[in-house]
Design a protein around this nucleic acid. Structure first.
Length: 221
DNA sequence: TATGTCAAATTGGGCG
DNA sequence: CGCCCAATTTGACATA
């Protein structure tokens, strides 16, 4: 399936006729903000401004810096991270390989991406949630279509039931055992023993036309 | 610029 | 305790 779709969403549910084309906006949207400085700012947010501070970042000093900023500049939250194109690509790639990370994998990926392990963890959590949501939406669409076709099938069967019922309601044609001519309805009676329609003139069971037999013997109207 | 969308991040609870 | 998940909040960004 579309494991190589731009979205990177792996949707393996066997739901026929569904496209997952709508799954890509997220990351595209996050990355196509290439107004020149978008990625630069993203990187600035995630990485120390200049070299040599990476270890400090990985030790979690970002929060401390943010605290300082907050303390100095007032009660504003730190700017929200926007992953760079490359970071997203690598995360998607590892997600494709594995939907969950071991602590070691997480650590390694965090170092590789210059992110905190917690950020990698959060990204995987959110990514799993998005995958599940997409999956559920597809399943919902599939079930809706099932409902539609079953409703149609039900209507068709209802019509058939009505036809059969009408057939049964119509007075049956019974041939006279003597003349082989159809008898009038007034000349017919129901045998109490065998519950068959008989000619009133004699005890012999009348021959009913085949059209009178219900198609499904078990159908009780 | 108001609004909607998307994704990063937080929160709180469950589980092994 | 660490991890995961569901629900929610929040900020960045697109666009009408």
């Amino acid at each position: 399936m579309g494991a190589t779709s731009p979205s990177g969403l792996e949707l393996t549910m066997a739901v026929p006729g569904l496209s997952s084309s709508s799954g890509s906006e997220g990351f595209v949207g996050c990355n196509n903000s290439n107004n020149g400085n978008g990625n630069m700012r993203d990187l600035d947010m995630n990485q120390p401004a200049s070299g040599g501070e990476e270890e400090e970042f990985l030790m979690g000093s970002v929060e401390e810096d943010e605290e300082e900023v907050r303390g100095a500049g007032g009660p504003h939250r730190p700017k929200k991270l926007r992953l760079s194109k490359e970071q997203s690509r690598l995360l998607e790639e590892s997600f494709r390989l594995n939907h969950t990370l071991s602590p070691k994998q997480k650590e390694a990926l965090a170092i590789k991406l210059k992110l905190r392990p917690r950020q990698v963890e959060v990204w995987f959590q959110n990514r799993r949630a998005r995958t599940k949501l997409k999956h559920t939406e597809m399943e919902c669409e599939y079930l809706k279509r099932c409902f539609g076709s079953l409703t149609e099938e039900n209507r068709r069967l209802q019509r058939e039931v009505e036809e059969l019922r009408a057939m049964r309601m119509a007075p049956p044609t019974v041939l006279s055992p003597h003349t082989r001519q159809p008898l009038p309805a007034s000349a017919l009676t129901m045998c109490p023993r065998c519950e068959r329609i008989t000619a009133a003139t004699g005890p012999r069971t009348a021959r009913l036309p085949s059209s009178f037999n219900p198609r499904r013997p078990s159908a009780a109207f």
